[in-house]
Amino acid sequence: MNELIDLALIAILLFMALFSVLSAVLFKAIIFFILLGLMLAIIWIRLDAPDIALAEAAIGAGITGILFLNAQAQLPPQHTQAYTVSMCKQSRFWFALIASLSTMIVLTLAVNQPLNPTISINQPIIEQLNASGVEHPITAILLNYRSFDTLLEIAVLVQVAVIALSLRQHEHIKIHSPTLPNPLLHACLTLFLPMLFLVSMYLLWAGASQPGGAFQAGSVLAAAFILFYLAGFNTPINNHELYLKFGWVFGLSVFLMVGILTLFTGDALLAYPLEFAGVSIFFIEFAVTLSIGWILFSLFVLSQNISLSNVKENNE
């Protein structure tokens, strides 16, 4: 019975992916991509990975879907030419087909080999869990065993936000916020926003012992900010650049400060002293959640429709 469910899930997933890639209209492709993200969230449950299911639903389908829809709204409506007939004639089609088929064949060759790895990292993860300050193994890996990875990853997020800002530099940040003065939406905001913040903080707190953590909490926070922004309220972000930068860098600098502090107490970077491990991890996670929420929100705001008039053609 289990295999049947898995096969059904995979069939739906692949159909979504095919429709998303082959559909002529961009809007349809994005909708199928969001559905693909949701199907993937269910598949991650089947793969006993609740953390990834949460992250995929919140970030993969949610935030990515919002960014795509936002981008699609500002590009020209597509002329839907007869896609399938002209598709096969293009040489690109055959080249792409050959490339994808060869990758699939090579990958299936690699995947159905009997694998018996000698080293298993699972045992040491579980054994040294009590030394890591948190009970949930995934959070222990992300913020203690391999915290150097997470530090760099947050630097990647800050880097992308800085690029988005620098691309908007030549016209000052005056972005007009969308007008959606719908009375019902404003009324519901008073109900949704506190609940979204509560869910985000719960996810953050629960991360220590069950699936949850900084990234999922950050994306829920970003959703709250975006909802608030879409309802037409002009947040101070629009006219002051320092708010933006301070919000982005807050998580990264807290993470780095704690890392440097531990450097001078212990002998290795990011080696939290045993009794402070839990507290320092939560402190880092709290700062990182706020920063991720703020970065994802400002990526949404900074890519609002660029008024064509003031983009000058200036070459170096």
């Binding site: 040491p124 040294q128 203690n144 290795a268």
Partner: peptide
């Protein structure tokens, strides 16, 4: 060679 965070090799970076 030093492992980040003071862990043993397969765990840390």
């Amino acid at each position: 060679q030093q492992v980040m965070g003071g862990w043993t090799l397969p765990l840390g970076i």
